[in-house]
């Protein structure tokens, strides 16, 4: 009799103990987090804008997070491989993904591969670059509106060089085509460099690219900027209107962000987000990013998460519509 009472008390004690430990765990974890270095997986190759941005920002991580952030490159499948590794890893905040629009929104939305907002959650956005639509200067139009009119009058005449299927140039051009009804030849090139070369050589008429790559050619007069696909005008191109101003509601922001596996405790996310906010405000980081031709546009977990979700749903619809 006594023995069983003893046993019951012990079991009950154990149960209560476990419960309280469980209840306490998240806060205790957030206070302690991080106790070891955090791994940030970049799912694309070395030397690209994602790699550089991530390296610049995390170079001061231990000052603000208390632990260093180790960058691991896991390229493959256009970002799908690294994304899947992170989505499958433990949601404890120690394995993070450097997100990009291609592998974190477009591929999962349009093609159902890689991992999107259903499998990952937002920590924060670091910055973004809008797509800029550029054209050869010797075409019979000077503005975005005139281009649209020209393309309407001459269907399938303009050759648009994109930077690869569903990339920074292809996706917004498909959106513009869908909204305005213009018909053009959309030729895929193997990245921004080849597409730009084709336009400079007169083998294509237009392309879409990021300001860092296009600016020297705008300055030398070899290219003409038609529209910026952002909510606001680009600082370095004050005379170029946004597509919205010209009456076409297309925005395409190639963002760089930090993402975590789904189910990561909120306190951990907050701690990471705060640390990243401070890192992006660090003077040395700000100046490095500036030299890449970019700027910091930090966005916290809630705002960015909402933006990401909206973008994802919008592209899902678009993908359905375009796939016929």
């Amino acid at each position: 009799m006594r023995k069983s009472f003893f046993l019951t008390t012990m079991l009950a004690g154990l149960f209560i103990g476990l419960c309280s430990a469980g209840a306490l765990a998240p806060t205790a974890m957030a206070q302690e987090f991080p106790t070891k270095p955090v791994t940030l997986i970049i799912p694309v190759g070395a030397g690209g804008s994602h790699d550089l941005t991530a390296r610049a920002v995390t170079s001061v991580a231990s000052n603000y997070l208390g632990q260093p952030i180790i960058i691991q490159l896991k390229p493959g499948g256009g970002g799908a491989i690294g994304s899947e590794i992170v989505a499958k890893s433990a949601p404890d905040g120690y394995t993070l993904l450097f997100g990009g629009m291609g592998w974190s929104t477009t591929y999962p939305a349009v093609e159902g591969r890689s991992k999107g907002p259903d499998d990952l959650m937002a920590v924060c956005r670091i910055n973004y670059s809008p797509t800029i639509i550029a054209a050869r200067p010797n075409l019979p139009f000077k503005t975005f509106k005139e281009m649209l009119a020209y393309a309407k009058a001459n269907p399938d005449k303009l050759i648009y060089g994109n930077t690869g299927p569903w990339g920074q140039a292809d996706l917004p051009w498909k959106m513009i085509g869908k909204q305005t009804g213009i018909k053009t030849k959309n030729v895929p090139y193997d990245g921004g460099g080849p597409a730009l070369l084709a336009v400079l050589g007169g083998h294509a008429d237009m392309t879409g690219g990021l300001v860092t790559a296009l600016l020297p050619h705008f300055k030398s007069g070899k290219l003409r900027a038609l529209a910026v696909l952002d909510y606001k005008r680009e600082e370095k191109l004050p005379d170029v209107p946004t597509a919205k101003e010209e009456g076409v509601d297309v925005v395409n922001l190639m963002w760089r962000s930090v993402l975590a596996p789904k189910g990561t405790p909120r306190p951990v996310i907050d701690k990471l987000a705060l640390a990243f906010k401070k890192m992006t405000e660090d003077k040395s980081v700000v100046s490095m990013i500036k030299q890449f031709g970019d700027e910091i546009q930090y966005l916290g977990p809630d705002e960015f998460g909402k933006l990401w979700r909206e973008e994802f749903e919008m592209q899902k619809e678009l993908g359905k519509a375009l796939k016929k």
Binding site: T212, L215, F292
Partner: peptide, 9 residues
């Protein structure tokens, strides 16, 4: 680019 030099024309 890191040094703020843009190769080009």
């Amino acid at each position: 680019m890191i040094h703020g030099i843009r190769p080009g024309p």
